[in-house]
Design a protein around this nucleic acid. Structure first.
Length: 271
DNA sequence: AACGCGCCCTGTCCGC
DNA sequence: TGCGGACAGGGCGCGT
């Protein structure tokens, strides 16, 4: 799915469209998308509630309903769209929230890896506490990285993708951030020098920020809250570029598999 | 305890 | 053209 920049793009769209809207009705077409509740139970917690705000935490969309929160994780192929009532598109439609003023919020998901669920205030605090540091926050420092990485022998690419450590970095931006850092994705996290950790921090932050500016990467399925593609794919340096020349050195971009996921890197730029 | 792997699903593409 | 296998922005639960 959607990694941090894609979720952030959707959240910024929703934050302009949804606050103040009331949920008038709930229709669940794929019950397996609802986490920890029956469709009726889920619907009962949402119906009549007003959406106060929309924020992002890690790769999750979080809507404050005043006390309880509605959370959405898009998995690999989830789409959360604001549409006009009657603007029908039933393709892989999983759930639909009717809003006031002729709008509805629709969740579509081909592979159905995504989830929707609600959390009470207390449960939200506990859930939030299990997640790692936000890479665009001031907490993502070289000092923090050094302390956290020192305890792990996992390959740095896999390390970056663990949401209990750093949130929001998925398969695309882990490869891209390490390319910018000039660090080999296979390096065990605890072998990185202070200077390399600083480059990893800066590389990850820069690529995430640029991707947000370009409204995210549409590789296959990603769409923003209005159904539009992101524009960052054209700016990827290594992801899905196996066999193509490296933009920086002209060498050949290579692919390898780590933890069952593809990693792309330039062996002559990354050490 | 940390880590690696299989699995959840559907769709698409590639090689034979 | 058909078919099997690999692979796709994620994350959970299991065994070691």
């Amino acid at each position: 799915m959607p990694e941090l920049p894609e979720v952030e793009t959707i959240v910024r769209d929703l934050a302009r469209l949804l606050p103040g809207r009331t949920i008038k009705g709930v229709e669940v077409l794929r019950p397996d998308l609802i986490e920890g509740d029956t469709p009726d139970g889920f619907a009962g917690k949402l119906r009549g509630r007003k959406i106060r705000s929309v924020v992002r935490r890690a790769k999750n969309i979080v809507m404050d309903l005043g006390g309880d929160r509605l959370l959405v994780n898009l998995g690999m192929t989830g789409r959360l769209l604001v549409a006009r009532t009657g603007d029908e598109d039933a393709t892989h439609l999983g759930a639909r929230l009717a809003l006031d003023r002729g709008r509805e919020l629709r969740y579509h998901d081909v592979r159905r890896f995504g989830r929707l669920w609600t959390l009470t205030d207390g449960a939200w605090t506990a859930w939030d506490g299990e997640l790692g540091v936000e890479p665009l926050s001031d907490d993502f420092t070289v000092d923090w990285l050094r302390g956290a990485a020192a305890r792990s022998r996992v390959a740095v690419k896999t390390w970056l993708m663990d949401q209990a450590r750093v949130v929001g970095v998925g398969n695309i931006y882990a490869s891209e951030g390490l390319f910018r850092a000039g660090v080999d994705p296979r390096r065990p996290a605890d072998t990185l020098s202070e200077a390399e950790l600083a480059r990893v921090r800066d590389g990850v932050r820069q690529v995430l920020a640029e991707a947000i500016e370009h409204r995210g990467t549409t590789f296959l399925d990603y769409r923003d809250a209005r159904g539009e593609e992101g524009a960052f794919a054209a700016r990827l340096k290594v992801y899905d570029r196996e066999g193509q020349p490296c933009d920086v050195c002209g060498g050949t971009v290579q692919r390898l598999v780590q933890g069952g996921r593809s990693t792309f890197f330039c062996p002559s730029c990354q050490h």
